[in-house]
Each structure stands twice: as structure tokens, then as C-alpha cells.
């Protein structure tokens, strides 16, 4: 199980839940499983097989260009954050 932390604007999709414990060996699987609980969630994060340009996925707090097949270890925390650029 990984923990998905639902951003405030998407909580309506998830019955108000702020956190969800969901199974998933990869990011793709995890987000699909969240989508099953919260229909529409997947499309808010992924578009054309990629993380949407205006958001980023952070795994355990680290924002990175995670591919959808990024393996998730149990207990991982996944959050959806705004896209960030560094100087």
C-alpha cells in the first residue's frame, strides 16, 4: 500500500478524503486504483501518458520527472504538487 495525499482542489472527487491508502506497484497502477475510487482523478494528473505539464508528482516529498512505471515501495507517499523549476 502507498499513501496518496489528495490535493485540496481534488478532494471533492474523493468524497472529501485528504489521504487514501491504495495498492499499486507502479505510479501508473496506483493512479489507476485511485481513479477507481475517485473517478476522474487519473485524468487530472495524467494526460497523453504523461504527468500534466502544470502539475508534478512528488514521491516521498521529492518532485521529479517520474515515469509512470516508476516502482513504488510500500509506504511511499505520493502527492500532486504544482510544477516547480529551479534556478
Amino acid at each position: 500500500m502507498a499513501m496518496v495525499i489528495v490535493p485540496a482542489p481534488l478532494r471533492d472527487l474523493c468524497g472529501g478524503a485528504a489521504r487514501l491508502d491504495v495498492a499499486g506497484a507502479t505510479l501508473e497502477e496506483l493512479l489507476r486504483n485511485v481513479d477507481a475510487l475517485c473517478p476522474g482523478f487519473y485524468g487530472r494528473v495524467i494526460e497523453n501518458g504523461q504527468v500534466r505539464p502544470e502539475v508534478a508528482v512528488a514521491i516521498n516529498g521529492e518532485a521529479a520527472n517520474y515515469p509512470l512505471f516508476e516502482p513504488l515501495s510500500p509506504g511511499s507517499e505520493v502527492t500532486i504538487i504544482p510544477a516547480i523549476g529551479g534556478g
Binding site: 490535493p7 485540496a8 487530472r44 502544470e54 504544482p82
Partner: peptide, 23 residues
Amino acid sequence: TREMTGQKSEKPSNIASHLQFKS
């Protein structure tokens, strides 16, 4: 204006996007 939910504003705007953190 784009929301994190994917919704867009009805009228054109100089606000390109809105985001929120809440707890």
C-alpha cells in the same frame, strides 16, 4: 484560468492558473 481540477474559467482572464494547499 485553469484550476487544479482541470476546470477553466468561463471568461478569458490574465490569471493563467490557480492552485491551493489546504489543511
